[in-house]
């Protein structure tokens, strides 16, 4: 297990380097001059050629691309992720201030995913090919197909504007996160429902379930204790991928619900060609994705003890 984790950690370095290089190259090939963007961001000013040259020098844009990349990477390794072209603030500080917001929304979305999709998926498996299964299958397909921004607008009108159950925007309490989290998680709920159904159906077809039933154990207990636990392995594996998707998808939700997270930050940065922020964002989200996938791997082994035993057996053989 340890060897495996070390291997993953070592793979982490070239993956990150590749990511940063790609992000940097995107900045290079993109059409706009950041100095110009900064000096015209108020929509009123038109800088002179001298003012532009000065600004380009101040921002380090008059250096070669290789030098720009190397100096940025050197700064990253020392904890200096650069300063935003637009507001001059420290990139790492800005990202760290926005990170908890995105993590909160994503966590809330995962909570909703687990809360809805696991029990509903189990119901679908238990009532396989009966009307609850068909109904929930239809629901899951609808949830996966519905566009998130449309659902957000409708939910905001009904639940916030008319019924006033949830606040429309803001950040600061769990109450602010319930609806954005739910909307963000809706697509994943639909997907995981079907995944859970299929995984549980596969487990329920196993002989040990038949044995448990023959021993007279209550059906709900068999599902809960033996069925669900073993079916989680498939779901947890996929959940790692879904979390990465949720992190990316949070941007539009943050924008709609006025949440000051990483998504809102990077959308503004992309608009303004604020490369230091974009590079920092890619670096941070890339690290998070890699760590989430590693966490999933660990969870996978914890949920399936025979994997540990197999690993030990392999080791013993050697």
């Amino acid at each position: 297990m340890k060897t495996y984790l070390w291997q993953r950690l070592l793979l982490f370095v070239p993956t990150l380097l590749g990511m940063t290089l790609l992000t940097f190259l995107l900045g290079v090939v993109s059409p706009a001059d950041p100095a110009m963007v900064v000096m015209t961001m108020d929509g009123m000013s038109a800088p002179s050629a001298e003012e532009l040259l000065l600004k380009r020098h101040e921002m380090g844009l008059d250096q070669s691309y290789a030098m720009q990349y190397v100096s940025w990477m050197a700064g990253v390794l020392h904890g200096r992720w650069g300063v935003s072209f637009i507001d001059g603030k420290d990139v790492l500080g800005t990202l760290l201030a926005a990170l908890p917001v995105t993590l909160s929304v994503t966590s809330m979305a995962i909570f909703w995913v687990i809360f809805f999709s696991i029990p509903l998926g189990a119901v679908m498996a238990v009532y396989y090919l009966q009307w609850p299964d068909r109904l929930l299958l239809l629901l899951s397909m609808a949830l996966t197909s519905v566009p998130v921004f449309w659902l957000a607008i409708i939910a905001m009108q009904v639940l916030c504007e008319n019924l006033r159950i949830f606040p429309t925007s803001g950040y600061g309490s769990l109450r602010n996160l319930l609806l954005p989290g739910l909307i963000l998680g809706v697509g994943t709920i639909g997907a995981v429902m079907r995944l859970q159904r299929d995984a549980l159906l596969a487990v329920l077809a196993d002989n040990y379930i038949l044995t448990a039933r023959a021993k007279g154990l209550p059906f709900f207990y068999i599902i809960y204790k033996h069925g669900l636990r073993n079916s989680f392995i498939t779901v947890v594996t996929m959940l790692g991928n879904y979390i990465s998707g949720l992190l990316g998808g949070a941007a539009i939700i943050e924008m709609i619900f006025s949440l000051p997270g990483l998504g809102t930050l990077v959308l503004a940065a992309v608009q303004a060609r604020d490369y230091p922020i974009i590079q920092g964002y890619v670096l941070m989200v890339g690290c998070m994705t890699i760590f989430v996938n590693m966490g999933v791997d660990v969870l996978y082994v914890l949920l399936k003890p025979q994997l540990r035993l197999e690993g030990r057996r392999d080791y013993d053989c050697r």
Binding site: M156, Q157, C160, E161, R164, S169, M255, I256, S258
Partner: peptide, 14 residues
Amino acid sequence: NMPNAATRFSALKA
């Protein structure tokens, strides 16, 4: 700060 116009609209109505 509410960047989205639809959100400002909903927040006013609510």
